[in-house]
Design a binder for these strands. Sequence first.
DNA 1: GATGAATGAGGCTTCATTCAT
DNA 2: CATGAATGAAGCCTCATTCAT
Lengths: 211, 211, 211, 211
Amino acid sequence: MARPQTDLDSGRDAILELMVELIEERGSSAFTMTELAGRAGMSTANLYRYFESKEALIEAVAGYWFRPKIEIMEEVIASDLNPRRKMYEFYARRFARMKSEWDRDPVAFASYVELGNEHFELVRSYVDLGDHYLSVIIGEAMAEGHFAGLTIDEALSLINQMTSVYVNIGVMGLIMPKLNTDKLARIIDAVFDGLSAQDRGAKAVSGLRAA
Amino acid sequence: MARPQTDLDSGRDAILELMVELIEERGSSAFTMTELAGRAGMSTANLYRYFESKEALIEAVAGYWFRPKIEIMEEVIASDLNPRRKMYEFYARRFARMKSEWDRDPVAFASYVELGNEHFELVRSYVDLGDHYLSVIIGEAMAEGHFAGLTIDEALSLINQMTSVYVNIGVMGLIMPKLNTDKLARIIDAVFDGLSAQDRGAKAVSGLRAA
Amino acid sequence: MARPQTDLDSGRDAILELMVELIEERGSSAFTMTELAGRAGMSTANLYRYFESKEALIEAVAGYWFRPKIEIMEEVIASDLNPRRKMYEFYARRFARMKSEWDRDPVAFASYVELGNEHFELVRSYVDLGDHYLSVIIGEAMAEGHFAGLTIDEALSLINQMTSVYVNIGVMGLIMPKLNTDKLARIIDAVFDGLSAQDRGAKAVSGLRAA
Amino acid sequence: MARPQTDLDSGRDAILELMVELIEERGSSAFTMTELAGRAGMSTANLYRYFESKEALIEAVAGYWFRPKIEIMEEVIASDLNPRRKMYEFYARRFARMKSEWDRDPVAFASYVELGNEHFELVRSYVDLGDHYLSVIIGEAMAEGHFAGLTIDEALSLINQMTSVYVNIGVMGLIMPKLNTDKLARIIDAVFDGLSAQDRGAKAVSGLRAA
DNA sequence: GATGAATGAGGCTTCATTCAT
DNA sequence: CATGAATGAAGCCTCATTCAT
């Protein structure tokens, strides 16, 4: 986070930035290693000192894009909010971040979506990590008596479906204007109040709702 | 128009469908003639009996996508609605069609946007045709005294700008949820009531407005 | 020589003529089976009923071009001229034929040269046949005491070298204007009078010389 | 100008030589990038480091062939001969060069003709340059009172026609033996003495004529 | 007989990648 | 460290050729 620690690292970062420029300008599929090397003022061969393959480069771009979202997830997980609030923040903070990116430049955002479509493996590991953290939250919620009668995996699957539009960038980019944290709060409330079959009652965290 | 007349035609249609699948699945830039030939169960060489080049194939896909929109324009032009209503329908019906496509599969829709971005020439002739038909409507409106003091080209340019988001798929895909026919009706009213400087008055076609 | 005897034969001849047109128009390397089939108003597949391969077709063209020259050789061989005259006619009549072709259309002539360069095997068998007939004449000449002290092969080789420009179309096309039968006659005289070492004397066939 | 300055340049030269060999051996139409790469002992991909396309390679060959002729033109233009002599040398020196090439290997010469036929654009710029220089000479001649009553373009066109066989390699190859500098001198004299209508007289540069 | 349909091989070209220096 | 040189694999496209009908 502070300064890059080696020359290789700083080189990598510089290249990454050029690469990000390129992708935001022209979409993810229209660049060649030769062109990137040209912009970076080095030979292609040298480029390979920094990234061992084009795939690695694209992975790095994905990493660059996902990193802040992962940091958010980790912060939220480490916080001592109650489970309901934690789950809300788990989605809301990432959504806020992505919405601001989309606001800044929807076309560039679309380029990342394109990149995600073309390299689905890269997205998968992020999704898996998200599932992992969400499971942790679900576990904490269960410890407090929520989701009675469901296994963790069942809850995970249901929640994933209910919140999908706030996470899936492929769709999110296209319906961004319809999304907001108020709706998200209602969804999370529904998750907590609606998914625990044994435990109906009027205990919505009213504080979450904007209304 | 109905049945394909030769084997070449029907083969073309079959290939087109596979091509559409491919594009909707994976975006327009990620396909090769070799892969399409593979899916079609034929050699690349044979593929070239049906489409003389990759470009021709992509053109055919564009045609496939634009055809229903063009038919809509022609129906509206041929109808005997009054100019204001005609202009409204000119946009509204195409918008409805595109919205339903987007609702069905926003990602596939995005693939067509991508294809349009990569082959702008193909879009241009559609745009030109739209301009032509719009000019016809403008002409009819002028015959009834609208747009006084403007040339057809001036009116065309202004109207194009005011309605752009209901026509330009590049942008439309990104803000679809914000678009609806009610807003469109207000825009068309504004066009008719606001662009004719000499002719102010209270004659909005209230029927157009949902309110 | 008279009428073609089967439909296949007559078809072959028709195709050959179209092919000759094509070659004379555009050089030997710039034609495709598809194009020839198109000109002939038939499918490529059908073309293969007449000629089993492109190579066979080209061979046929070569045959078409060489046939009259071969007929000339056979007539001369069958004639009862004396050896010296026979050898002269052996070259002179073929030269006259080629010169008239060159006069008619030097560019078309060049196309055949090109064809010969690209398919040297075809030329070789003609050359071999020429060698065979020339050997016959040499044999007859030897029977009359010429070329004493030389084997047939030695004489053949020497004579080939001395007469090369009157036979080798690759070069002939380029120096045609310098060639004539008068010079040829002198060469043949030199062959007969100069190659028979033991047999010097003043017996030039003066009738051969234009002077 | 003397030594190649980079490896790419020297590589280009080496490849050019192999290419020239290939063309002189087998004509211009019978070579493939693959074969040339094979002869050069490299991959086709590497060949493209030296020449960016087959067309560029052929252009280079054309340049290689035309360069000495262009140098001759420039020398003659720069010389301080009188216009009549200058025009004579303008043709005669190039003709001498081409004749010596033809003498060395008429078949190779024919290959260049073939190449010129197949890539006429390459010939055109040479022809245009020749027209330019000839115009300069015509201008100088006019300054001395020649070609009275003619525009430069009229004179250019007439002279081009009269001298065509000493310049047009397509025809030259076929009638080379008939061409010589003596005839050329007569033609140039005719140009100077015959094209200036107002200015008849007996001032042929007799020195030009062999007689 | 004749055809439309189909293909394999090969040509030009690009690009990610490697390696000796 | 950094580079120029080199390559294999793949992409688009053409063409001679075959085969079922």
